[in-house]
Amino acid sequence: MNSTLVQNYFREEKLPHIWCPGCGHGIIMRAIAQAIENLGLDKDKVCIVSGIGCSSRAPGYMDFNTLHTTHGRALAFATGVKHANPDLEVIVITGDGDASAIGGNHLIHAARRNIGITTIVFNNNIYGMTGGQYSPTTPTGDLGTTAPYGNVDPAFDIAKLAAAAGATYAARTTAYHARPMTKYIEKAIAHKGFSLVEAISVCPTYYGRKNKKGSAVAMMNFLKDSFVDIKAAEKLPADKMVGKFIMGEFKHDETQEEYTSRYKKIIEQVKGAK
């Protein structure tokens, strides 16, 4: 049977999308829709919020309540949406710069509150929309238009950052690993507290070209060859892990109560009091 995902969950008249040929973002956007379909969510009760950047254009194509906000602030807007109406399933789509540079403060605090928002970070290691400047996830030494002699900064590990800040579900996956990615997004949405899935994307146009990473296919193959599942990595000797990156679920804690549910108890406690 042919998939009806596009007909059912996308605004077909808004396609094709603006992303460059070979960009990994479309795969991640599709995985989000697939996860929503798999969970059987009511489209009217799903709200997708984004900031600014390449990834943040995704909500415009997706047939839900969609909110394209200001740079870095998606999680702050989303917090207002979720707190005001906890019945909505709130999903934030953001990029590496949007989430961890200009929006870094909102990321750690949304995680700390454990508010029921699912954040999908489209991490392509670069500011794509502005033409290839280094981001907080650009590897040290790599090139960007603002790192012409090699990036001096160390990089953030966004999934671990979120977990350390209090997110109760945190996972990393890549645009190559589309099936596990869909599964992680599904689990992240189903999770009651704050969840984050860092989806490693590819930007052949800016990051790839500048750093001589080859074609889009070569970049996808790099994801395939370089990312090792956390469980497999535990069994591998250290020398086999050189140059490899870890993906998988870093944290899944169902014991912490979600923010709006805690606040609801306060309302029940004081409602009607003078």
Binding site: L67, R73, A76, H83, A84, L88, H109
Partner: peptide
């Protein structure tokens, strides 16, 4: 967490 988030959340809430 900050003033920017203060107004952003209020806008998000208004949309509901």
């Amino acid at each position: 967490e900050d003033e920017i988030a203060g107004i952003a959340a209020a806008i998000g809430a208004s949309l509901t």
